[in-house]
Design a protein around this nucleic acid. Structure first.
Length: 489
RNA sequence: GGCGCCAUCGUCUAAUCUGGCUCAGGACAUCGCCCUCUCAAGGCGAAGACUACGGGUUCGAUUCCCGUUGGCGCCA
């Protein structure tokens, strides 16, 4: 009764760890941490031909970045290893032998083509069909087939009248009868175990208490239960998570929005924001609380509160949440620490220059902070760093005209004579100038911003000008005036 | 083809288990107003769901049951 809570995730090292896998990992992790249990990482690499150890690194990196730490795994070891399925082949073989010896399994000598053909024939006649071929061939025929190079697959014998019942922690009672299942394959003709077989053996040997995985596996569960029974294992508890679908309501594909978790890292999502967002995709605490850090999530999480309906993955709210985390959930120091690599990466400033101008760069970043959905958005600040930026044609069209040019030309003289080129003095002189000329300040501010930054949108003009500096501001204004003269001539 | 899972605003969801508290609550997105030099951020507000459809059960159903439809998935 006092059984330790042990959960696991079993990703394939495909060189890709997407948002769906991340959410499954998160729910397993939250469940483990909430119950003071263990979170185990097992790599399902029986199908992978390339070096799974290299690609496993991607999984490690993604989980580490998200802050989902595991207690046992390929890199950490543990009492129940190895944690690579590819290193467990002998174990699967032993159990396969056991099932053969117990008369629970038989070798199937049908070729995939034959099975496919058989299936199509039945389907076209709208007849139910489940593949069973225990007594299909005589000993002679089998010998003949073996000689011609056909490799057999091992099939589990499903008792036709067997009723399989289990209580899913999310879906409630699920029932299925043996007649609706075919004699399913447990060892493929290439000698590799199927998902169902390897999974049952590993989960049992690793003393997994709760299997929390996607609903796509709910149809596999009765088969696995049959295996648990035949092998004499006691079955764990099951919880099948809804799946995350793309905006087209299809399963997330690489093509449609299913980006790797590490892509989110590169674009500048805050891991805590992604965790928070993912936690809410299929689960809620039951009230209106939405912004929750890991500690709070662990505290509140429960499988019972998972919504069984599939969720559509829409990143709009993630972007809002990320911005919210950037502004409110991390402090200034942390923000600067996170943003600087993106500044350096943008190529606007060299590392060397940065070291000399830390404070100046920090001020730019702070001005941009509430405007960043993702850290990568800092590229919008290009005009702070260089005079060589593009002017938005739309903005020029709006403010490159006689009236604006005249005003700016006059104000430019005033600016030139300004000794202390800071936000306060710039603002004061601009407002005074406008008052004298009976102009509305914004009639000068708007064109000035476009002339200096090339865009209509951005932080306050005076702070912006101060940071850009007097020389550059004057240069940019002159340049724009020339541009206007050229156009009108 | 068989079997399984699912069904509340555009999206994520609350209320559903334990029927009346709901002319269905919150958040994102959208729109409007305020703040304001613009854009964000922030504040306020609006619009948005006959709870997929159809039947039951009941005095009463978003909530329980059945069917239909649709979506998703499993069958090396």
């Amino acid at each position: 009764m006092n059984q330790e809570i042990r959960v696991r995730i079993a990703p394939s090292p495909t060189g890709f760890f997407h948002i769906g896998s991340a959410r499954t990992a998160l729910y397993n992790w939250l469940f483990a941490r909430h119950n003071n249990g263990k979170f185990i990482l097992r790599i399902e690499d029986t199908d992978i031909t390339r070096s799974s150890k290299d690609m496993t690194k991607i999984i490690f990196d993604a989980l580490t970045w998200l802050g989902l730490d595991w207690d046992e795994g390929p890199d950490k070891g543990g009492e129940y290893g190895p944690y690579f399925q590819s290193e467990r082949k002998e174990i699967y073989k032993q159990y396969a032998q056991k099932l053969i010896a117990q008369n629970n399994a038989y070798w199937c000598y049908c070729t995939p083509e034959e099975i496919e053909k058989e299936r199509n024939e039945f389907f076209s006649k709208k007849m139910n069909w489940q593949h069973r071929c225990r007594d299909k061939f005589t000993q002679d025929e089998i010998a003949h087939r073996e000689k011609s190079g056909i490799l057999p697959a091992l099939r589990f014998i499903v008792p036709l009248d067997k009723k399989i019942l289990f209580n899913d922690l999310i879906h409630g009672t699920v029932e299925k009868i043996g007649a609706d299942m075919e004699d399913f394959v447990i060892i493929k003709s290439d000698g590799m175990p199927t998902y169902n077989f390897a999974c049952v053996i590993d989960d049992h040997l690793m003393k997994i208490s709760h299997i929390i995985r996607g609903v796509e596996h709910i149809a596999n569960t009765p088969k696995q239960l049959l295996l648990y029974e035949a092998l004499g294992f006691s079955a764990p508890q099951f919880a099948h998570l809804p799946v995350i679908l793309g905006t087209d309501k299809k399963k997330l594909s690489k093509r449609l929005g299913a980006r790797s978790v590490l892509d989110y890292k590169n674009e500048g999502y805050i891991p805590e924001a992604l965790i928070n967002f993912l936690a809410l995709l299929g689960w809620s605490p039951g009230n209106d609380e939405e912004i929750m850090d890991s500690r709070r999530l662990i505290e509140l999480f429960s499988l019972e509160r998972i919504n069984p309906a599939n969720a559509i993955y829409d990143e709009t709210k993630l972007d809002w949440m990320n911005n919210h985390y950037i502004i409110n959930k991390i402090d200034e120091k942390k923000f600067l620490e996170l943003i600087i690599p993106y500044v350096l990466n943008s190529g606007f400033i060299t590392e060397e220059d940065y070291k000399k101008k830390r404070e100046w760069v920090a001020q730019i970043c702070l001005l941009m902070r509430p405007r960043l959905k993702i850290l990568k958005d800092i590229v919008k600040a290009k005009y702070f760093f260089t005079d060589e930026f593009e002017y938005e044609e739309k903005a020029l069209h709006k403010y490159l005209n006689d009236a604006s040019i005249t005003r700016v030309k006059e104000f430019k003289i005033l600016l030139e004579s300004l000794n202390n080129f800071n936000a306060k003095s710039i603002e004061d002189s601009l407002r005074n100038f406008c008052a004298e000329k009976s102009l509305k300040p914004k009639d000068l501010i708007h064109p000035l911003r476009v002339y200096i930054t090339g865009t209509e949108a951005g932080p306050g003009l005076f702070e912006t000008m101060e940071l850009i500096g007097k020389d550059s501001c004057m240069k940019r204004i002159s340049r724009t005036i020339e541009k206007y003269d050229q156009r009108t001539n």
